[in-house]
């Protein structure tokens, strides 16, 4: 299980930037480092969107391909490397989800329910941002259910607020209010992590 993780070094935003700079110079080893740092997180994103099928791994590969090909276009002023990668993974997975069509969506949604961590895994908590995961889980868990749902539908399913209103049966204004309150709470609760990323 640990064979794909080569680094146990702390993950820092400045290190990520250096890795992307090396990727911009065509250093394949830098991509390997990025993979070691983020593949488990990115695969969690693509699996959350696509379910546990091989599609999720394909989307992960596409994500890292895109990161490799577009490293020169990465703008540190617009997002951290972590967020940049997560947004690419999300887009690639959502593209695949759309291509599957509505037929499979119900099955995907069922398969995409958050899975319990693999108890047998020997993954290094440090590598996987153990502390950050704990804080984010707590922040998400503390959101009222309806606010969490609106944010997750937007993020993991790419739904617009109107689509969320249709899906949940709530008025559009209510959806906006829930989204806004949820986003503000997340921002407040995660301010120390946001600072680290910026």
């Amino acid at each position: 299980m640990t064979s794909s993780l080569r680094s146990a070094a702390p993950l820092r935003a400045s290190d990520d930037l250096e890795i992307v700079r090396r990727m911009q110079q065509g250093e394949a080893e830098a991509l390997a480092e990025l993979y070691d740092r983020y593949a488990p997180l990115l695969l969690a994103v693509t699996r959350r969107i696509l379910g546990g099928a091989g599609d999720a791994e394909e989307a992960l590969q596409e994500t890292l391909f895109q990161a490799w090909n577009q490293a020169g276009r990465y703008d540190p002023d617009r997002s951290s490397v972590s967020t940049w990668l997560i947004l690419i993974a999300r887009s690639r997975a959502l593209d695949r989800l759309r291509n599957r069509g509505a037929r499979d969506r119900a099955a995907t949604a069922a398969a995409a329910e958050p899975q319990a961590p693999d108890a047998s895994s020997r993954l290094d908590e440090h590598v996987l941002h153990g502390e950050r995961r704990r804080r984010v889980r707590q922040a998400v868990a503390e959101l009222p259910e309806e606010q969490r749902r609106v944010i997750e539908l937007a993020f993991y399913e790419g739904l617009s607020q109107s689509e969320i209103a249709t899906r949940t049966g709530a008025p559009l204004g209510t959806v906006k209010t829930r989204a806004l309150l949820g986003m503000k709470k997340l921002r407040q609760a995660l301010r120390s992590d946001i600072r680290e990323l910026m």
């Binding site: 299980m1 640990t2 794909s4 993780l5 593949a39 488990p40 997180l41 695969l43 969690a44 994103v45 699996r47 959350r48 999720a56 791994e57 992960l60 002023d77 617009r78 997002s79 951290s80 972590s82 967020t83 997560i86 947004l87 958050p114 899975q115 319990a116 961590p117 693999d118 895994s121 993954l123 996987l128 941002h129 950050r132 995961r133 984010v136 889980r137 922040a139 998400v140 944010i151 997750e152 993020f155 986003m183 997340l186 921002r187 995660l190 992590d193 946001i194 990323l197 910026m198």
Partner: peptide, 19 residues
Amino acid sequence: RLFTEATGLLPYALAPAPP
């Protein structure tokens, strides 16, 4: 930027998926 980073942190709540 602050909100983008906040939402970009959401996947950290997921169980990591070792490839």
